[in-house]
């Protein structure tokens, strides 16, 4: 896909920001070797996967406030039933978890299309339902996973290759083919102009179902990677809410327009690094995490403002 000049500038500035923050973070650490890099990558995998799922949905003109809850639900399901299991069972539950997440996404999209109620309202409601299910399945922290299975995510001692794969594989295997396909283009189409999409022969309702289903696919991957990385389940609404907010922030930071139809998934994946760094760096200085939340929020507002201004100027 050819990016517009504005998008290129945008991605470059985010990349610049990421480099600055990386240097900053590496100076904080006594050593900065492959182990540290691995820690960083493992830290951003869940954020990045969720950000990609959310970005896709926003590009398609929606927003999913339940995407964090979807991920937590899958985290709970897979961690609960994979505890102490063999490799095959863990793999089976991981796949099943992803399928469940895709179905949950599809059903969400279907409800939105059928009811005609705004995405934001429907998904706010489903987020409560999903967290409820997660708590029902796994009432408290616990669970586990087969360690050989987890190795595919966290890799060997000092090698960061496996996590890097986990980060890039979804982009390569899902996003690249998708954005070239008619389905991917339809996502942009319904996000940009539902009327024109309709006249171009796009089935808007069906496309929205697929949109939320693919979003669910990313949320499922996020849930499974959480299980593999943390080797536990954490059924907390706070975590899912923060994750959802982060996913929206990363989407916006990554150049996805909240109005829909504009953006890609590289930018948000990159932007999730920023969202990972800010609290980590502040924690490194011993600053209260509450401040980092404030800064992160302020940064998001700033980005939305700047993005809005750029857009307004570009129109003229």
């Amino acid at each position: 896909m050819k990016l517009s000049l504005r998008e290129q500038y945008w991605n470059l500035s985010i990349l610049g920001l990421v480099i600055i923050l990386t240097v900053w973070r590496s100076n904080q650490l006594p050593v900065f070797g492959s182990y540290e890099i691995k820690t960083i990558i493992l830290g951003i995998i869940p954020i990045a996967l969720l950000a990609m799922g959310q970005s896709l949905i926003i590009i398609g003109g929606g927003i999913n406030l339940a995407i964090g809850a979807e991920a937590i639900l899958i985290n709970c399901i897979t961690a609960k039933y994979s505890e102490g299991s063999d490799f095959a069972t863990s793999l089976r539950w991981a796949l099943l978890g992803i399928v469940i997440s895709v179905i949950v996404g599809a059903v969400t999209g279907w409800i939105i299309s059928k009811s005609g109620i705004a995405d934001i309202v429907v998904t706010l409601a489903t987020s409560f339902v999903l967290i409820g299910f997660a708590l029902f399945i796994q009432p408290g922290p616990g669970g586990g996973v087969n360690l050989d299975f987890a190795k595919y995510f966290i890799g060997g001692e000092d090698s960061y290759l496996a996590p890097l794969f986990v980060l890039f594989l979804p982009i390569l295997l899902i996003w690249l083919p998708l954005q070239k396909s008619r389905l991917g283009i339809s996502f942009y189409a319904i996000g940009s102009s539902k009327d024109a999409a309709f006249l171009s022969g796009v089935n808007v309702a069906r496309t929205r179902v697929s949109l939320y289903a693919v979003g669910g696919l990313f949320a499922g991957l996020c849930g499974v990677s959480l299980t593999a990385i943390t080797q536990a389940a954490s059924p907390f609404a706070v975590i899912s809410n923060t994750a959802t907010l982060n996913s929206v922030a990363a989407a916006v930071l990554g150049g996805v327009a909240l109005a829909g139809g504009v953006g890609g998934l590289f930018g948000p994946a990159l932007a999730s690094l920023v969202l990972y760094y800010i609290p980590t760096i502040m924690l490194g200085y011993g600053i209260d995490p509450a401040y980092s939340q404030i800064i992160q929020g302020a940064l998001t507002i700033l980005v939305v403002l700047v993005g809005g201004l750029l857009r307004a100027r570009g129109k003229r």
Binding site: K2, R182, I185, S186, Y188, A189, G191, S192, S193, D195, A196, A197, L199, S200, G201, V202, G261, V262
Partner: peptide
Amino acid sequence: QDPALIPDLSLRRNLRLTN
């Protein structure tokens, strides 16, 4: 009567959309 082209997409991708 109303333009049936998606404003945010390139022409090439619009053509893809309508096969």
